[in-house]
Design a protein around this nucleic acid. Structure first.
Length: 857
DNA sequence: CAGTGAGCGAGCTTCCGCTTGACTT
């Protein structure tokens, strides 16, 4: 009975595989990597000694490793079944190192799909760890550390502390910066397009209208007007009819990147949201693994989908397809993202989960369905008075829907034309025109990236991996040192000309439209631009979009055993490190400073720059202009302004704050902007302006309105247990404040007309819930066992302690009820050793525990 | 919470890629 231990990367996978393998194997998970380069003050790599890596087990992996060691000791043999890609091979090798296994003899198996036949087959042909592939991973890891650590360290000295740089994140930021500049420098030019509206009879003999457009466009109004003038008193005849059958093919099933794009376009999810919902679906067993670069599906899945399509739609709709992954950097360790059981058309779960699942199901099914067949019609219309010109009407008819029955891939282009059906025509047919218009249009600058659009670009460039797309996007948008911000901005009004020809009369008018409106798109911050420019100037090679692709090729050579990994790293590192040293010595601090001109009032220099706090600032007066001990005047940038594009006039405008608005009820009213955004000051009370409100525009009336709202909110609504309560609107929506308690007001109540009676009900309900929160409560010990979102947990002062698991399973509330104070103290003692030794207050313990992981390197 | 921002300058920060659970508004 020599049982075997099989180690995979994902616990969800472990569960499934254990089911397929039967009693011979125990299957455990490594939860990804188990060792990493040491994270100290040095590089964690010995650059003077063949780049020897210093690997350690991170503290949060100690438990996993301990568990694996115990399991390994219990069995006769350990098998490694980590993913078949560079990282997976390395994890297997690290497991050998940590579990004292010989990599030359330890059995290593791989599967690209988690199906019973695939796994049973894999077990029959084990191999051993491929050290060449492991070395390619070590090279990847070491290179990323050297680049990341040295560039970040340089930024701390030349720009600001806390900043980060790396092979992936820095070019990602550069993409956003360059796109923004392309947009800023784009020259919008107007043109006129000509569209005529005609009448014709449809197949039922009913008169309908259709549109035809001139293929020629005009650069100016005179040209467009000339065209229309020429059409006065013209006759229009059908000159040529071109009918062309076309086909459309379904897109391949989802990879991580395409899932993120479509979930963003079709249901508006951020990449993070998509991934966390997909993770949930995966853990529930509804879909295959969600971090993949492959469009391949298992044979059994292809068969099952075929059967389902035939069953639901008939044989005609079925077309078996196998998709080749186009992306060169793909490592294809997993399948495409597909439903595990195609018969399951919908799932239980919350709305988000259902919508994402439905998207995945449809996309996978559609990929095995027949082409859609269309008929495209193009009709040329001759103009009697204008023989060298023509108008063209285009239409499209769907002859057979095929895969479109289920799924149509979206595009980023907003101006997606919907299908137009044309009436039937015969050659020579005379058409009656309703009107013809020349409308002024404008060339459009490239669009800013959405999160998912940026992921798409990264994938095209081979930068980053499926598991890192979402974290990379989050990284560059991090709150305090964001290089990139996601924002929606309002557009501007634009006037355009319209010339109409109707009843042989020309008329002109102007129209208005809003242009440049954006929704949840990525803008570079000032810091993003400064850092990106700095790195680009001094590290051309690393900042080149092709850098990752070229080092990937070198990693491939290592994996094939053609190159020794440390010599590859040496070839990169020597010149790179020289550049770092040189930049450190020679480069100026990067502050993005720009002189805007002279302040007419004082005659002093006006400039913008990044302050040492990492905030952009406008400054008046510098160096010699200031008299002794005098400080320059400072002002902040307003939302939407940037260091790079701020004008002198806008800069001077910002010095209008603080602005006195007058008096109200004998108190001074003033508007200003502070650390927490713009506010109105009323005597000694501060009232924040609502989001997007411009302090430069705030009127006296608006300020009084805000004061009144505040006074209203502060007026007690009533009393409960002789303690007054008030209502207000906060970060998390409307609330009632009673004593120290904040109680959310649910949407079913009307905030404005909330009665005292209703408020009391809400307070009572909250108190009731608070009471139920505790499973045990020992206030004198500062200990409680409470019901949390993830089940029961122990609270010790401010510290949170998890209850021990039984075979990895969490304790239920009922089980927690049986715990005594002694039991709970023991649990705390194990988790927080020495918690009861000294005479420290529980609160201090909590603080100490929180600080601990940071200090321990 | 509410007008900072050089100047003097301790000691801190950081990478990419695998994974999940984290934790108590």
């Amino acid at each position: 009975m020599s049982k075997k231990l099989l180690i995979v990367e994902s616990p969800a996978k472990a569960k499934t595989i254990e089911k397929y393998l039967g009693d011979d194997f125990t299957v455990k998970s490594s939860y990804g990597h188990i060792r990493d380069l040491e994270k100290g003050n040095d590089l964690g790599v010995d650059v003077n000694n063949g780049y020897r890596p210093n690997y350690v087990i991170p503290t949060d992996k100690l438990r996993t490793v301990k568990d694996l060691r115990e399991n390994a000791a219990r069995v006769g043999e350990v098998w490694l079944a980590t993913d078949e890609d560079r990282e997976g091979e390395a994890i297997s090798w690290h497991l050998c190192e940590v579990l004292n296994l010989d990599p030359r003899t330890t059995k290593r198996i791989v599967f690209h799909e988690i199906t019973k036949p695939a796994i049973q087959k894999a077990v029959l042909s084990p191999r051993t760890v491929d050290m060449n592939v492991v070395n390619a991973q070590q090279a990847r890891r070491v290179l990323d550390r050297l680049v990341g650590w040295e560039l970040s360290g340089l930024l701390w000295k030349k720009v600001k502390g806390q900043l980060s740089a790396g092979r992936v994140q820095s070019v990602t930021v550069k993409l956003v910066v360059e796109r923004e500049r392309d947009i800023q420098h784009f020259k919008i030019s107007p043109y006129f397009k000509i569209v005529a509206q005609f009448f014709a009879k449809n197949t039922q003999g009913k008169l309908v209208t259709f549109k035809a457009e001139s293929p020629t466009r005009f650069d100016d109004e005179a040209g467009a007007e000339g065209f229309l003038k020429k059409c006065i008193n013209a006759n229009y005849t059908v000159n040529n009819i071109d009918v062309r059958p076309t086909r459309r093919k379904p897109a391949p099933p989802f990879t991580t990147s395409t899932l993120q794009q479509e979930a963003s376009r079709k249901i508006g999810y951020s990449v993070n949201r998509t991934m966390s919902i997909a993770q949930k679906l995966y853990e529930e067993g509804y879909i295959t693994y969600m971090r993949t670069d492959s469009t391949n599906m298992s044979e059994s899945a292809i068969l099952a989908m075929g059967a389902e399509i035939v069953k639901q739609f008939g044989e005609k709709y079925h077309h078996e397809r196998r998709f080749k992954t186009k992306n060169e950097s793909a490592q294809e360790a997993h399948e495409a993202i597909r439903p595990t059981y195609v018969e399951r058309q919908s799932i239980s779960g919350n709305r988000d989960e259902q919508r994402l699942y439905e998207l995945i199901w449809k996309r996978a099914m559609a990929s095995q369905m027949a082409d859609a067949e269309l008929e495209k019609t193009s009709v040329d219309i001759a103009i009697s008075t204008h023989p060298e010109a023509k108008l063209v009407a285009e239409g499209e008819v769907l002859k057979f829907d095929g895969f479109l029955k289920l799924y149509l891939e979206s595009t980023d282009d907003e101006e997606e034309e919907t299908q137009v059906m044309l009436p039937p025509f015969v050659k020579g047919q005379v058409l009656e025109m309703d009107d013809m218009t020349a409308t002024e249009r404008f060339t459009r600058p490239p669009a800013r990236f959405t999160e998912a659009g940026l992921v798409k670009k990264l994938e095209e460039l081979g930068i980053g991996r499926p598991s890192t797309y979402a974290p990379t996007i989050s990284k560059i948008m991090e709150a305090n040192r964001g290089y990139v911000v996601k924002e929606s901005r309002e557009g501007e009004e634009r006037v355009f000309q319209i010339i109409t020809l109707k009843n042989n009369q020309l008329t002109k008018k102007t129209g208005k439209e809003i242009t440049g409106t954006t929704k949840q798109v990525l803008y570079p911050s000032d810091m993003g631009m400064i850092v990106s420019d700095f790195l680009d100037e001094h590290f051309k090679k690393v900042m080149d979009y092709g850098f990752t692709a070229s080092v990937e090729q070198e990693f491939d050579h290592i994996a094939e055993g053609k190159t020794e990994w440390s010599s590859m790293i040496d070839g990169f590192y020597r010149p790179f490190h020289t550049d770092v040293e040189k930049t450190l010595k020679e480069a100026d601090r990067a502050s993005g400073e720009r002189i805007l001109g002279i302040d007419p009032a004082s005659g002093r220099t006006v400039l913008v720059r990044m302050s040492s706090l990492g905030r952009p600032v406008i400054q008046i007066g510098t160096g010699d202009e200031l008299i002794e001990k005098e400080k320059p005047r400072y002002a902040n940038l307003r939302p939407g302004q940037s260091l790079e594009s701020l004008s002198l006039a806008d800069a001077l405008n910002s010095f209008q704050l603080p602005r006195a608005l007058g008096e109200y009820e004998g108190e001074v009213l003033e508007v200003n902007t502070g650390r927490y955004g713009p506010y109105v000051k009323f005597g000694s009370t501060f009232i924040s302006l609502s989001k997007g409100e411009d302090p430069f525009e705030t009127s006296y009336d608006r300020a009084v309105e805000l004061v009144k709202i505040r006074q209203e909110a502060d007026r007690p609504l009533g009393q409960f247990q002789s303690v007054p309560f008030t209502k207000g609107k906060g970060k998390f929506g409307p609330f009632i404040k009673w004593a120290d308690l904040y109680i959310n007001i649910p949407a079913r109540y009307s905030f404005d007309t909330l009665t005292t009676q209703q408020a009391v009900e809400l307070i009572e309900a909250k108190l009731e819930k608070e009471a139920n929160r505790y499973i045990h409560h020992w206030p004198e010990d500062g200990i409680s066992v409470e019901n949390g979102r993830w089940g029961p947990f122990v609270k010790f002062g401010k510290a949170v302690v998890n209850l021990p698991r039984m075979d990895g399973v969490k304790m239920t509330a009922d089980q927690a009820l049986t715990l005594t104070l002694i039991d709970v103290k023991k649990i705390i003692e194990t988790e927080l050793p020495g918690a009861f030794d000294e005479k420290k207050t529980p609160a201090k313990k909590g603080a100490a525990k929180k600080a601990a992981p940071k200090k321990k390197k």
